[in-house]
């Protein structure tokens, strides 16, 4: 037996940036997360060439899942062309050789910060959401050991109390993003800071969603066809943002989640948040070939 026979051959670079053992560990944790929907699974978050808090959790999941035949789409607050989205997309393409796309329908792997695309995702697509703070109980229980016990006991009274307090003080639920949601009737998760508009898209969705927080070293998942129910009182219905009647001033798309652009005269104009949907709408209006898939919302109303 020689020393050479006991060691592996030197490789100049791991495929997809992460080394084999890191990927193996993250895959195991992903499988565990899929087996127990909504349950936060700790993992050994690795260093990646990006600062913590800029999507390192999502990037590690993408690096683990990626292969050259996959098409990657990266979005940041709905936009494909933001600096952060472009940097992550370029990085993933560089370390994997996988082709990139901005079209939701063509993508196999979609890494997103704070939005779910407006076009419906299919069963063969995977959505990776970047999560800054994975613990929904943090605002009501700063002690994480106790918070974990509360998850184990399904002790979510304080979460409901938070909603009660918001209604008492403001007359309505004020939680805008990261709306606490019950997954598969068991674990309350924060669906990352997606707007309330996007939360219903996770319910009984065909696609797999993996949520990962690199800084907090936690990942969790919503497997296909899993119930995701935002916490609501029986007599206070869940409300999404009132964007159904708004029209995008650039593309003319209407009935989708919009970005508000304040104007100098105090008014606001609106642009569709899903930038690729806006581009497709413009192309279609100009007669260029563009296929807009079936969307979650039609005319501002959620379609089941």
């Amino acid at each position: 037996m020689t020393l050479k026979s006991l060691t592996r051959a030197w490789e100049p670079m791991s495929y997809g940036f992460l080394d084999g053992s890191a990927k193996r560990e993250i895959r195991r944790k992903m499988l565990k997360a899929i087996a127990v929907p909504g349950c936060q699974i700790p993992y050994a978050s690795r260093e990646v060439p990006m600062a913590r808090g800029w999507g390192t959790g999502g990037l590690q999941i993408s690096c683990t899942l990626i292969h050259p035949a996959m098409r990657i789409k990266v979005i940041d607050q709905g936009a494909d062309d933001s600096v952060n989205a472009a940097s992550i997309r370029n990085f993933l393409a560089r370390v994997s050789g996988a082709p990139v796309t901005m079209d939701t329908l063509q993508a196999d792997l979609i890494q997103s910060r704070h939005r779910i695309p407006e076009e419906r995702l299919r069963a063969d697509q995977i959505l990776v959401l970047q999560v800054p703070n994975p613990e929904p109980l943090r605002s009501v229980q700063p002690n994480m050991s106790i918070a974990r016990q509360m998850h184990a006991d399904a002790d979510y009274g304080r979460m409901w109390l938070q909603l009660y307090e918001q209604i008492v003080r403001s007359g309505r639920v004020m939680q805008g993003a990261s709306y606490p949601s019950l997954v598969n009737g068991r674990f309350v998760m924060t669906p990352s800071p997606i707007p309330r508009w996007d939360v219903p898209k996770l319910n009984m969705a065909q696609h797999l969603t993996i949520l990962s927080a690199g800084r907090e070293k936690r990942l969790y998942a919503v497997p296909p066809f899993t119930r995701v129910a935002p916490l609501v009182f029986d007599d206070v219905p869940y409300r999404v943002e009132d964007h159904g009647h708004l029209t995008c001033q650039r593309s003319g798309a209407a009935g989708y989640f919009m970005n508000e652009i304040p104007q100098a005269d105090g008014t606001s104009t609106f642009e569709v948040s899903d930038s690729e949907l806006g581009v497709k709408t413009i192309r279609k209006a100009e007669g260029a070939p563009a296929h807009i898939g079936r969307t979650w919302y039609e005319n501002g109303r959620l379609v089941q």
Partner: peptide, 26 residues
């Protein structure tokens, strides 16, 4: 008590833990 929550919320917490999910009833 949760000193910074409303007094009614403190009472409601107990009802919430017991499974009450109707705001008006709370």
């Amino acid at each position: 008590l949760l000193m910074h929550h409303s007094s009614s919320g403190n009472v409601a917490e107990r009802l919430l833990v017991a499974g009450e999910r109707r705001f008006a009833v709370l």
